[in-house]
Design a protein around this nucleic acid. Structure first.
Length: 568
RNA sequence: CGGGCUGUGGCGCAGCUUGGUUAGCGCGCUUGACUGGGGGUCAAGAGGUCCCGGGUUCAAAUCCCGGCAGCCCGACCA
């Protein structure tokens, strides 16, 4: 490709809104352009990288026995009503992506579980057709509240998503493992260091699931990683250990004391009330009134210096709930006597010491101090209800864990029958002759996001440094002063032709611009190998070779085996 | 959805406080000359609904009101 003909304009300055390196460099290098907030066009260079990423994905998934399909981006709204997710997807996320057309209401699909379930369900009637895993590379639409970081968080995104169909749980787990392993190979080939972590399933649902995290300073997620045993989990899902049952309360400990604490809801203000250097947030019980996934009122206790992490499906009390449960006084909640009022008390493992604790008195404008677990109140269930932080004990081995900032590159789920039990046509005849329904898995990776993630992981202050597996071209050939030195033009043209004839993807900078511009653009675009043909070199019969990644330089004979040396 | 900031040629910005000639600068673009190994120099050009609508005024990029959009922080997040 001659650069004089390539649709690319490099920018010396990045748009003011480009905050992270991948966004800045992809825009400056002319790989992508913004059309609207969170909506990007891929120009030729960006599309070449995207295609290379997709090629790796196709290669590994095909090798793992998956079959490519292409499902519609436009989904009949009824499909989402059947699965029940039309509502679950938030009050306005789906309507915002709704399209009214002849033939009814459609949505721009945010994900494809419904469509794939009915599509595959219609084709598969027998266990003999299983196991089956299909995948696609397709555009998805999300009504993203806050698009940001260029391609990392967008409203329209390109995703590679796979779906497995199996006859029983063992087979589903085997299929899951197969795709999981393929995903790991894909990331390795893309030059990404990915950590699979246990995760929450969110709106997709299902039991076992993993997120594939790339540790990164620009990440919006965090995961927990044990320094010793390798346990890794998303902070949303991470639990911690290291605590046993609390000891019996001290028999001679002083009794609880009630304090008048007007206008002191919240941990901070209570600490301020006591105004004692020996008393901090960690001495207080954070008491959160919640409704669990079965609708029971639950009081969640954790140490006052901790952030709460409620199990999925739970929600905090709203005003109406407080009105219905007078034992829980908003702002002054304490655990004493709650069981008698029908409230279940659960406590974070960080509360597994007798005390003394400072907590609400269940009476407006009052707190108590000196409350002991086992004497003044009891806990029905111990669990992990606080967000894990660096230094906490690992659930598995008790060593300390770290919190790692990261970008979510992919997410895989064992769905079981979540969709096949509600979508029509999801049954097949099993080996025993009875009707059965699919056990499914789903697996998604954001290809357009991966483009940004790779850029984020492979760049320096001058520009991008693409791994050759995804680079838009393999060789960046720059001719210096070709316009005034015919020998240079001849040598560069000839070298270009030889490289192309050998199947090497070469970007040929044949523009009549100064050497500085060519070098700066070569650094910015990040093609792995740069070849420079200049007047000095041509006179000596050499071409200069330089690695974008290592900066290593060599001189190669122009009439020698240049093609073999640059690889293909 | 809450809080803050910003909308001025393709990109980055100044001008706005204190209304007043042809709305500036850098990059980029066009033409020419020079230059020629790290975004070079000079000259001449092209390119603008100053986000939109209303208002105040003799006069609005500038002041007032109302919208819209973008960005940042937070909430949310498949």
């Amino acid at each position: 490709m001659r650069m004089s003909r390539l649709l690319v304009r490099t920018l010396r300055e990045a748009p003011a809104d480009a905050e992270v390196a991948s966004h800045r460099l992809l825009v400056r290098g002319g790989f992508i352009r913004r059309l609207a907030s969170g909506v990007y066009s891929f120009l030729p260079l960006g599309l070449r990288v995207l295609h290379n990423l997709e090629a790796i994905i196709r290669d590994e998934l095909d090798a793992a026995g998956c079959q490519e399909v292409l499902l519609p981006a436009l989904h009949p709204l009824e499909l989402w009503e059947e699965s029940g997710r039309a509502k679950l997807f938030g009050s306005d996320a789906l309507p915002a992506m709704q399209v009214e057309a002849r033939g009814g209401s459609f949505v721009l699909g945010p994900t494809h579980e419904e469509v794939v379930t009915v599509t595959v369900g219609a084709e598969v009637d027998s266990y003999r057709q299983l196991p089956l895993t299909v995948y696609q590379v397709q555009v998805k639409f999300r009504d993203e509240a806050r698009p940001r970081f260029g391609l990392l968080r967008t409203r329209e995104l390109i995703m590679a998503d796979a779906y497995s169909f199996d006859a029983d749980k063992d087979a589903m787990q085997a299929s899951y493992r197969t795709v999981y392993d393929a995903y790991m190979r894909i990331f390795t080939r893309m030059g990404l260091d990915v950590s699979p972590v246990e995760a929450e399933s969110g709106a997709i649902g299902g039991d076992v699931n993993h997120e594939f995290m790339v540790p990164s300073d620009v990440g919006e997620d965090h995961f927990v990683r044990c320094r010793a045993c390798g346990y890794a989990a998303n902070v949303e899902a991470a639990t911690r250990g290291g605590f046993g049952d609390p000891d019996s309360p001290d028999p001679i400990a002083p009794a609880m004391v009630e304090h008048h604490t007007p206008d002191r809801p919240g941990i901070e203000r209570v600490v301020a009330f006591f105004d004692d250097p020996a008393i901090g947030a960690a001495d207080l019980l954070k008491s959160l009134a919640a409704v669990d996934d079965t609708g029971r009122p639950v009081l969640v206790l954790l140490a006052g210096d901790r952030e709460a992490r409620l199990p999925s499906g739970w929600r905090l009390f709203e005003d109406a709930d407080f009105a219905a449960h007078p034992s829980l006084v908003k702002g002054y909640i304490g655990p004493m006597g709650q069981q008698a009022a029908g409230v279940t008390v659960v406590a974070d493992v960080g509360v597994a010491r007798p005390g003394p604790w400072i907590t609400g008195a269940n009476r407006a404008d009052h707190h108590v101090s000196g409350a002991l677990v086992g004497r003044d109140f009891t806990v029905d269930e111990w669990g992990s209800y606080a967000q894990v932080v660096t230094g906490d004990a690992c659930l598995r081995c008790g060593e300390e864990v770290d919190l790692v900032r990261s970008v979510e590159a992919a997410h895989t789920f064992q769905l079981g029958t979540k969709y096949s039990s509600v979508m029509p046509g999801s049954s097949f005849v099993a080996e025993d002759g009875d009707e059965a329904i699919f056990l499914m898995g789903c697996y998604g990776m954001g290809v357009s996001r991966l483009l940004a993630v790779v850029a984020e992981e492979h760049h320096d202050d001058k520009g991008l440094m693409w791994p050759s597996s995804v680079a838009p071209f393999q060789v960046h050939l720059a001719a210096l002063g070709a316009g005034r030195t015919p020998e240079v033009a001849e040598a560069a043209d000839a070298l270009h032709d030889r490289l192309v004839a050998a199947g090497v993807e070469v970007l040929y900078d044949d523009r009549d611009v100064s050497p500085g511009v060519k070098f700066a653009d070569a650094d910015l675009l990040g093609i792995p190998v740069r070849l420079v043909v200049g007047a000095k070199g041509v006179a000596r019969g050499i071409v200069e070779w330089r690695s974008r990644v290592t900066g290593e330089e060599r001189e190669l004979a122009l009439d020698g085996p240049v093609v073999a040396l640059v690889g293909s």
